[in-house]
Design a protein around this nucleic acid. Structure first.
Lengths: 213, 213
DNA sequence: CGAAACGTTGACCGTTTTCAATTACAGTGG
DNA sequence: CCACTGTAATTGAAAACGGTCAACGTTTCG
């Protein structure tokens, strides 16, 4: 079916850029697993929105080694830094079949120069994204798998009693947490055994538990 | 001595905001260890540049628990997200004596609205920061302490042969890597023993080592 | 000069990863 | 409609790795 309206979650950086790109020559194309979206050293000509699939950005070092800078998942933006760089500093390769939107850098910069209001909105979106990333990074500082998962649950909990509905698979959540899925399942079991959470179908309900200073 | 000119590293987000705040009523004040900069729930009135010291941002949950969202270090910006929020969503408490610049939110937003060029520059700065944070997050996905450190060294290496001059203490670098300093020293020793790096005073020189796909 | 932080290494212990095996589905094609 | 394939969920057991604790030399700084 056609993604006529909302290919990206409302409020996300991708959604913001998507609406901004109205009227620009944006290509929406499918790339096959293994295909290269751009090469390190190519002129940085565009910024990309990933509608679905998975793209890996890797940097090739002088000594032949290769390190991953980012694995972009569905709904994310990648190569934003190309806005301020002349050339790509990494390769982008599709890990799975993927659907990507290519927004030409010059057109985007022109649009921003012409519309200060949108630019400001973009600043706010980016600031939000920075906050999210820093929170994620901070989560990783929690060594214990159980406590890290609990902190994640608390961060994402809503309502009263606080609960989390998990749409994504635990496998994906494990990756975000920097744990193996086994560790996550064990942590879930431990928390439930301790009565700190309760699992009800798709929901995880949190129980009160003070953390003294 | 007076930080008349360059209180923040050139090119950093903090430096950009600092120059942007010229002519605004920015307060530069010292806070003591333990003092609160702002409280969760307070009207979000400002964004902060941390000249030195350490500030911890924590969120208090409904159930009495408390999770850390960020530990800001010298040279960093914190509470940027307040630009788009009506109220602070966390407490900010000084962990050490600290020196902070308070940029009023309204003045900053006005300045940005009046100066599209600066706003665009800010977008680029933020995009760069997002890239950095994502790279850092990706580093954390490398489980092995040795390999993680090596990847970090490669990311930061310059010149030929690639080498890293470390100005910060290894203790701080360890924190950025999400490792204890002991683990970092061991990893350094291992890498040197394997001949993958060579340490010369303040420098770490990398040796070629192919990483086959 | 003394205290505090940094640098470094060893030993031990606990947790997580890894590997392996099992159940439960959801989609697919005969 | 049912085997069939692939992925998610789940649990167990063993191995590996990093954290923690301890000890010590060194540098820094008031």
């Amino acid at each position: 079916m056609d993604a006529v309206n909302p290919p990206f979650a409302a409020g996300s950086l991708a959604a913001r850029l998507w609406s901004l790109s109205r009227g620009m020559r944006v290509t929406r194309r499918r790339v096959e697993a293994g295909a290269t979206v751009f090469h390190q050293g190519d002129p940085a000509s565009a910024i990309y929105l990933l509608e679905n699939g998975r793209i890996r950005l890797t940097r090739n070092l002088a000594d032949g080694a290769c390190i991953t800078l980012l694995v972009a998942e569905a709904g994310e933006v990648f190569a934003e830094a190309s806005l301020s760089a002349a050339h790509y500093h990494c390769d982008a390769v599709a890990e799975t079949d993927a659907l990507i939107h290519t927004i030409p850098k010059t057109a985007l910069l022109d649009a921003l120069a012409a519309d200060p209001r949108e630019t400001l909105a973009l600043v706010l979106s980016l600031a939000t994204q920075v906050r999210d990333l820093r929170a994620r990074l901070e989560l990783r500082n929690i060594r214990s798998a159980t406590e890290r998962l609990l902190a994640w649950l608390r961060l994402h909990a809503m309502g009263s009693p606080p609960s989390v509905r998990h749409d994504r698979s635990w496998t994906l959540i494990a990756a975000e947490l920097g744990l193996t899925r086994e560790a996550v399942y064990r942590a879930l079991a431990t928390l439930e055994r301790q009565g700190r959470i309760r699992r009800v179908q798709q929901d995880v309900v949190l129980r009160a538990a003070a953390t003294p200073p």
